[in-house]
Amino acid sequence: MSRLAVLILTYNEEHHIAGCIQSASFADEIVVVDSGSSDRTVALAEAHEAKVVQHPMTEGFAAQRNFALTCTDADWVLYLDADERITPELAAEIQKAVSSGAAACYSIKRYSIAFGQKMKYGVCRPDTVVRLFPLDAAEWEGMVHEGIKSNLPRRQLPSYMEHYTYTSWDRYFQKFNQYTTLWAEASYKKGKRCTQASIIGHAAGSFLQMGILKRGFFDGFYGFVLCCFHFSYTLAKYIKLYELQKRGAKSRADCNP
């Protein structure tokens, strides 16, 4: 019979980790890969009988997820973020997919819950993520919005998971700063460049896309606020990239007087 391991990456997730592990209690094994939490994340994970492995995240999310694959010998793996919850309906579908033996990469729909509100549009609109597959069938790539690389067919499970994406503005701005920096560094390494005019253009375009095209304003007050902050998020990504360009140009100039 195929065994399933749930893999969870954590860093200071004491407010989420217990609920996440409890929602995945149907799995044969739960592995928490922690990148140096200073709060009670590790203690809480161990109290809920998860296997905890310490590993610094120095090369981005994809590398950390790939490392997690080496921490289990289960037949199948299911990735969860600490702020995600598996519904009972989804748990049954996951178990059915694993027991069927049909090799595939399964995607799962996520409904985001931001500041206590289930979001349907805009920045936090429902999305689909590939999270369930045989252990040796896929690997992760990408620094920030990482994805899997696999030759297996893609299938989607009917039910959904809940994503408690933002519960406080402090947490929002922690992610804001972390993700914009990672994006800028990865984009700079890939050769992406921008101008002052394009920075403003990208930010304005992102606001219009999320607010109007993706109907973010339909989510009411928080939908509108998140669209406004998405403008700032995009602005921050590109201004950080622009600063990296300036430093790179200065370094080249210093080397070629």
Score class of each variant (00 low, 15 high):
M1I: 04
R3A: 13
L4H: 02
V6D: 01
E14A: 07
H15T: 15
G19R: 05
Q22S: 15
F26S: 06
D28E: 03
V31K: 08
V32L: 10
V32F: 11
S35M: 05
S37R: 10
T41K: 03
L44G: 02
A45D: 02
K51W: 04
V53R: 06
H55L: 03
G60A: 09
Q64T: 04
R65F: 09
R65Q: 12
N66A: 11
L69T: 01
D73R: 14
A74R: 02
W76N: 02
L78Q: 00
D81Y: 10
D81V: 07
R85C: 09
L90M: 15
A92F: 08
S99L: 12
S99N: 10
S100E: 06
A102L: 13
A104Q: 07
S107V: 00
S107M: 06
S112G: 00
C124M: 06
P126M: 11
P126H: 07
T128R: 11
V129M: 10
V129W: 13
F133R: 00
L135P: 01
E139N: 03
V144E: 09
V144C: 09
H145S: 13
I148R: 02
R154K: 02
P158A: 14
Y160R: 09
E162L: 15
T165G: 08
S168K: 06
W169G: 08
D170A: 14
R171Q: 12
Y172G: 05
Q174G: 04
Q174C: 00
K175D: 01
Y179G: 00
T181G: 08
W183E: 03
S187W: 12
K192P: 00
R193W: 00
I199Q: 13
I200K: 13
A203N: 12
F207W: 13
L208E: 01
I212W: 15
K214T: 01
G220V: 07
F221W: 07
V225D: 04
H230F: 14
F231W: 15
S232E: 01
S232L: 14
K237H: 11
Y238P: 02
K240M: 03
L241Y: 03
Y242G: 05
L244Y: 07
Q245L: 08
Q245C: 03
R252D: 09
P257V: 10
P257G: 07
